[in-house]
């Protein structure tokens, strides 16, 4: 197998004095979907937000240990956080379109990266919306407000927005938990489509979703990584008793 895209070694994370992640070590493979599962408060969201350093904006939060992307330390002293976040896109649990038009939402990442000609922008916006399977629904109203879209469409818009800057990694923090089953299915199909081009890490509470979309699954519990393995193995024949109890719904 190829080199892992993301290599994590002995990663701890603190909010003030409380330690929420304990010595996480795992490899996340390139161009596959890795699902993070576990009960609420187990640290999976904190972990995924550590990969693009979104936790930096929380006062008193700090991480120690190593997270390497393509061999380069995310928490290195000379890491350019802004450049890092351009390589590592993120989709949040609550869709968060900007108070701008549909077009401007997708173009936002391009504009802050220096923009481009009008034509290039229009092309990239179209391509991103197509990749996010939203183009057909919005092509006639690109300049109306993003808030006019339904919840599921808004979330796909946020995915399109993240894709527009051409990231290598896509972090998804419960991207479908606020959506109805139909919209969820669309997002899942989309994840399946996207994995040929992107390394995807998805946090989910929905076990079936993890089983459907992911290649690897990591089970978190109380800030520790309990088990990591191929999704099939994790759901059929997990090594740990705790994993088995969780995936079969015996607790959590």
């Amino acid at each position: 197998m190829n080199e892992p895209k993301i290599h994590v070694k002995d990663f701890d994370f603190f909010y003030g004095a409380s330690k929420v992640l304990h010595g996480i070590s795992m490899d996340i493979p390139d161009r596959q979907v890795t699902a993070l599962i576990g009960p609420s408060g187990c640290g999976k969201s904190t972990f995924v937000r550590s990969i693009n350093r979104m936790n930096d904006i929380i006062p008193d939060a700090r991480g120690t240990g190593t997270i390497l992307i393509d061999g380069k330390n995310v928490y290195g002293r000379d890491t350019d956080v802004v450049a890092l976040r351009r390589r590592v896109g993120m989709v949040f649990q609550k869709s968060n379109p900007f108070p701008k038009s549909i077009f401007e939402n997708v173009a936002y990442g391009l504009r802050i990266n220096g923009g481009g000609s009008k034509r290039e922008m229009a092309e990239i916006v179209e391509r991103s919306l197509r990749r996010a399977a939203l183009w057909e629904e919005v092509k006639d109203r690109l300049h109306s407000s993003a808030f006019a879209l339904s919840g599921g469409q808004q979330q796909r818009l946020c995915i399109a927005r993240a894709l527009a800057v051409d990231p290598e990694i896509l972090l998804m923090d419960e991207p479908a938990s606020a959506l109805d089953p139909i919209a969820t299915t669309k997002i899942e199909e989309l994840i399946y489509e996207l994995k040929s081009n992107y390394t995807i890490v998805i946090v989910t509470h929905n076990m079936q979703q993890a089983a459907r979309v992911s290649d690897k699954t990591a089970f978190f519990m109380m800030g520790r990584l309990v088990e990591l393995g191929d999704t099939k193995t994790m759901f059929m024949t997990p090594k740990e008793k705790m994993t088995e109890d969780y995936v079969t719904g015996r607790f959590g």
């Binding site: 949040f92 900007f98 108070p99 504009r111 927005r161 993240a162 800057v165």
Partner: peptide
């Protein structure tokens, strides 16, 4: 969430303020 969305796309803090939060 709006601020996080902008930062996650690689916006600097000031950029996020002036292009997303303030509007």
């Amino acid at each position: 969430g709006l601020r996080e969305g902008a930062l996650a796309l690689g916006a600097t803090r000031s950029r996020a303020i002036f292009t997303v939060i303030l509007p």
